[in-house]
Design a protein around this nucleic acid. Structure first.
Length: 359
DNA sequence: CATCCGTGGGG
DNA sequence: TCCCCAAGGAT
């Protein structure tokens, strides 16, 4: 791979020129005022997430938490409600934890070095380099999926881009060529824009419009589709779950998920492993000392997470007033109004689908 | 190094 | 419908 040092050196200038010439074609709110806080927040939100999905969340989050001090003092329920639907919820918790460290250790100002940034919760090597380059002008390559794809094509590298050693090798390859100051962040963002608009991850890349086309080996050999190489992903597990909409008047039972694992700390409708039939549901109600006035089967649904698939069935159950006083139900559930479901409790997409069946 | 951790868009 | 995958990080 070291044999490609010349090529890497040659892509910097045309890429920067291209970015400066067309940068405004991608209007991204975090580029308007790239303060350290704005850059940090956007980079966290953008982890494994498309820019178009992030934009509305970015605006809402900054309205709720305009600065690091506000974030450090965030109410957890409000914080998670701001993140509802964006996924990878530990990102939100880590943002708050890091904000508290920044208030305590750095007088409310985000630190600028790679080492200090990487010590903060939720910030790894990529995000540290992105913040350090964009917000502080340090010459550090932010090796993300875009850079991996672009470079793998330019030098026709067949190494598995999911392997950590490949990321390290690409960073070392780029490092000696990185500029300082505004160009550092511009170069990282140029790679991101090129990856998002020209050197596409699927379908045919737009090589005719690419500033690197003349020195790209994949373009020269018309092998763009062969890169980047990636180890085949492991098959997802499939799990059956049954969701219960327990209604008491206009209130619905919610349960808080454990603080670790999938959808940690978020709110869910009571649910059980397996596909429950009507007699199973009646057993469940008896066991919890709940009396149903009406039981209704809901349509099946499927929810796909990154590593597991839920095959969902659902039951809508109208309870009589005893539902509120049964001991186990009282301890395990809170009874939320539709307004609280909409505006207060953070309910992930896997369960939010069933909200439409309430009432 | 492998596994876990969400969601929605696009081919 | 199915599969890939997007500005990754923590354990």
């Amino acid at each position: 791979m070291t044999g490609h040092a010349d090529t890497i050196g040659e892509i910097i200038s045309p890429l920067l020129t291209w970015y400066k010439g067309q940068a405004q074609t991608r209007q991204l709110p975090w580029r308007e005022e790239p303060t350290p806080y704005h850059t940090w927040l956007s980079e966290i939100m953008l982890q494994q997430t498309r820019a178009t999905a992030v934009i509305p969340y970015y605006h809402r989050f900054l309205a709720a938490f305009p600065d690091i001090a506000a974030l450090a003092a965030a109410d957890d329920e409000v914080l998670m409600k701001c993140w509802q639907g964006l996924g990878y919820y530990s990102r939100a918790r880590n943002l708050k934890k890091a904000a508290q460290v920044i208030m305590k250790e750095y007088q409310g100002e985000l630190p600028s070095t790679q080492k200090q940034l990487m010590a903060l919760p939720g910030i790894g090597r990529y995000t540290a380099n992105a913040i350090a380059s964009i917000a502080f002008g340090l010459p550090l390559p932010a090796v993300d999926g875009n850079i991996l794809r672009v470079i793998a094509r330019v030098i026709t590298c067949r190494d598995d881009i999911m392997a950590a050693r490949t990321r390290t090798a690409f960073e070392q390859l780029l490092l000696p060529h990185y500029p300082t100051g505004k160009d550092a962040g511009a170069l990282n963002q140029a790679f991101m824009d090129l990856g998002a608009t020209i050197c596409l991850p699927h379908g045919a890349p737009h090589c005719s419009r690419c500033p690197l086309a003349s020195l790209c080996l994949a373009n020269e050999t018309e092998t763009q589709q062969e890169f980047p190489q990636k180890a085949t992903a492991k098959a997802r597990k499939v799990e059956d779950r049954t969701i219960l909409l327990l209604q008491q008047g206009s209130c619905i039972a919610l349960h808080k998920r454990p603080n670790r694992g999938l959808l940690a700390g978020l709110w869910e409708f009571p649910n059980l492993t397996g596909q429950l039939d009507l007699s199973n549901v009646k057993d469940y109600l008896r066991k919890h000392q709940l009396t149903a006035v009406k039981i209704e089967k809901l349509p099946a649904a499927k929810h796909i997470f990154s590593h597991v698939t839920w095959q969902l069935t659902g039951w809508k159950i109208q309870l009589d007033t005893a539902g509120l006083t049964a001991a186990e139900a009282r301890d395990q559930f809170i009874w939320a109004t539709p307004e609280e479901i909409a505006g207060k409790y953070s309910i992930p997409a896997a369960f939010a689908h069933y909200i439409s069946y309430i009432k």
